[in-house]
Design a protein around this nucleic acid. Structure first.
Lengths: 318, 318
DNA sequence: CATGATATGCTCATGGAGAGTATAAATGGC
DNA sequence: GCCATTTATACTCTCCATGAGCATATCATG
């Protein structure tokens, strides 16, 4: 990006790079959010991009469907990262990583591959607030982040750091914002509390719990989780993670698994009803304790009926 | 993407590609939204990506700042497209286009380059609803889209097509949704009413008004406009497009320019106040008709004070 | 048959959003 | 100076989504 931003005459051979696809494949099983991993749960599935398919998206979709044997419900591009070669000294080729978010169901995955499903809170233990704020937040994260804030050069910078911490982690009776997954990860990274941030991997005792991943895969995962947590609020994508028929409580548990926090049961049901997102199948759930629940299915018609998108502008209707 | 999605042993030389950056640079001048263009307003500024900078984003930022002489307020990655070479027969190399959205002000741009500012409604005349629905919607788009819907194979497909049209364009007393810029462009593309969609460039009389662009640049622009229209509703990014001091009406006109529709003046002001996004400078605007307006400035502090992001889940606070 | 667990229906208070009315403060034409 | 016009600014009112809690229905189990 040295010259003007338009077609120049640099020979193509001189600027050749490679492109990789990285996938964040999400499923929810028994109320636990999972992601597909390889390399002993230490990496996201990824591979070289080839130009056999029309588009990046169709390439990813085809691959996943071949692996799982079922259509991939929802695919969305996440972000494109540039890596300056693995060594950084120019000895290895530059590459671009294009990451995607995909939604499936665990039971649809054919066995045999080296792929596994891992709970995503293994990688981000501080993100699960379904049973209240995790103990490790107050016990480990708070003191270490406070120490990091205090280590800044000037008092002004110290206050600034701590304010950032308090906002992104919901400290000092600010509200917890479940969408700030990426910001929290990046802050911990900046504070060098994350294994990926410290090359020497020394003094692990001062780090923060949570399973690391190769390269920047955990950052990509954080991006995917953040995107999904935001998306479930205005698009009916949870249903891609559900079986064909489900009870409202099962649906609620899935939403809670993704959001990492509990929702108000009665209001959740009211929302489903008034938005007409589901319809009764007529059947009743078996194998339950307590009063049996009606089974529902997703009303696929809503996808055609509406263009879901909310406005927040004080519009004028005249 | 033929083999498994993980590191394989394909030699890097066999899968070499090139990467380009494409920028959607937005400014608002005199209540009109503009984008930076090159090639006689027929293309977005773009250029080869080189690995001189740490990241894609910093590369773009550095380039734009060198051109305009001022810091680029806001930069955001839009989307990454894959092109199968310009000819499609393999004679030219494959490439990846990484597009960005950036916000500036027109008066900050240094002259001399081949760049110009073009009104973005030149490219999407049907997107400006500030003076009500544009005449060309009812006069041209509706009949041609209806004809396209009727040309489907079966009555069921015809209804399906027309329903899609009605939703994305707000026909048949559905509401106009200003965020569906990309969907509308893609629908017109699919209906072959867009010059870029018809190679032969024959019978332009049956096409739809709106200036075309090279390659898929107009699609990228549509992506950028859609993103920006969504963003201004929950992030204070409009201020990147404003001078240091402005009146509330000027601010409102900028929002309206981007959204393509009018907002309710009193409610708009109430929103600015209660969200504490602006503060009075104490000065009064000169050169005005009517009662003089107070000048305001953006309260940069809000960026630090809050993590703006709304929830729509029926959360439980227990 | 009591208990526990879940499903489901209903009410109530609060606050934000959409919309309209009224008043204030300037300019320019007569 | 008076009046029409234009813009700024202050209130008010209604409607409805949202958060929250209470009450009741319907099952399994000991």
């Amino acid at each position: 990006m040295a010259g003007p931003l338009r077609k120049t005459k640099i020979p193509d051979s001189a600027r050749a790079i490679t492109a990789d696809l990285v996938a964040v494949l999400v499923a929810v099983t028994d109320g636990q959010p999972k992601i597909m991993t390889i390399a002993n749960a230490g990496a996201l599935p990824s591979g070289p991009f080839e130009f056999k398919h029309r588009s990046l998206q169709s390439g990813l979709r085809a691959w996943v469907e071949a692996q799982t044997g079922h259509p991939l419900g929802y695919v969305e591009q996440l972000y494109t990262f540039a890596d300056r070669g693995r060594t950084g000294d120019g000895s290895s080729p530059h590459s671009v990583s294009i990451s995607y978010l995909g939604l499936t169901r665990e039971d649809q995955v054919a066995d045999g591959a080296a792929a596994h499903w891992s709970g995503w809170y293994d990688y981000f233990p501080w993100e699960d607030h379904r049973e209240g704020p995790p103990a490790l937040l107050a016990k480990l994260l708070t003191p270490r982040l406070r120490a990091w804030a205090k280590s800044a050069a000037s008092p002004a910078l110290q206050r600034e750091r701590w304010q950032r911490v308090a906002i992104t982690f919901g400290f000092e009776d600010r509200e917890w914002n479940e969408e700030l997954v990426l910001q929290r990860y990046e802050l911990l990274f900046e504070a060098a509390l994350i294994p990926e941030a410290v090359r020497e991997s020394g003094n692990a005792a001062t780090l923060v719990p949570g399973r690391p991943m190769t390269a920047d895969h955990r950052r990509i995962l954080a991006t995917g989780i953040a995107r999904l947590r935001a998306k479930i609020k205005y698009r009916p994508v949870v249903f891609e993670l559900m079986p064909a028929e489900f009870t409202l409580l099962q649906l609620q548990r899935s939403v809670e698994a993704l959001a990492g926090r509990l929702v108000h049961k009665q209001n959740f049901r009211r929302l489903m009803e008034q938005q007409q997102l589901v319809e009764e199948t007529g059947a009743i759930a078996a194998d339950t304790v307590g009063r049996p629940a009606k089974l529902f299915r997703f009303r696929h018609a809503v996808l055609a009926e509406r263009a879901v998108a909310g406005t927040k502008l004080p519009l004028s209707r005249t």
